[in-house]
Amino acid sequence: MIVYEKEESYVLIAQQDHAQISGDLMAAWQEELLGERISDVVQAAYEHDRSWAGLDIDPIWNDAARRPFSFRDFPPNIRFLHYQHGLDELERINPYAAMLSSQLYTMLAERADTPETRAFASREKKRQASIQAELRFDLETLHYHFNALVLCDELSLFLCMEPPGTPIRQYEWFAGGFAHPQPCGSGGRRIKAQWRGDAVVALSEGPFARAVDTILAYKEVSKSAAKQQGIASAYKQAELRSHRVRFIIGETM
Rank of each mutant, 00 (worst) to 15 (best):
M253K: 02
L108S: 03
D138A: 12
E31Y: 01
T117M: 06
D88G: 00
I231Q: 07
A133S: 15
Y46V: 05
G176P: 00
A14Y: 07
V201W: 09
E140A: 11
F71C: 02
A97E: 01
N77M: 04
K223H: 06
Y235G: 10
Q128C: 09
M107A: 13
I21C: 14
A202K: 04
L149H: 07
R136H: 13
E89I: 13
A109Y: 02
I93D: 11
L34N: 02
R67M: 15
A202R: 08
S102V: 07
E31F: 01
H143S: 15
L159W: 03
A53T: 08
E140N: 14
L34G: 08
R111K: 11
L151Q: 01
I78G: 01
S156D: 03
S186W: 10
I13Q: 06
Q84D: 11
F120N: 03
P75G: 11
Q84Y: 04
T106M: 05
Q229N: 12
A65T: 01
Q237M: 11
L55C: 02
L240M: 13
V201L: 13
H180D: 10
D88A: 14
Q84K: 12
M1N: 09
E89Y: 04
A45C: 10
G197W: 09
T141M: 11
R244S: 15
G197M: 08
G206I: 06
F178N: 03
E134R: 15
E91D: 07
Q194V: 12
H82V: 00
G165L: 08
A238K: 06
C160S: 11
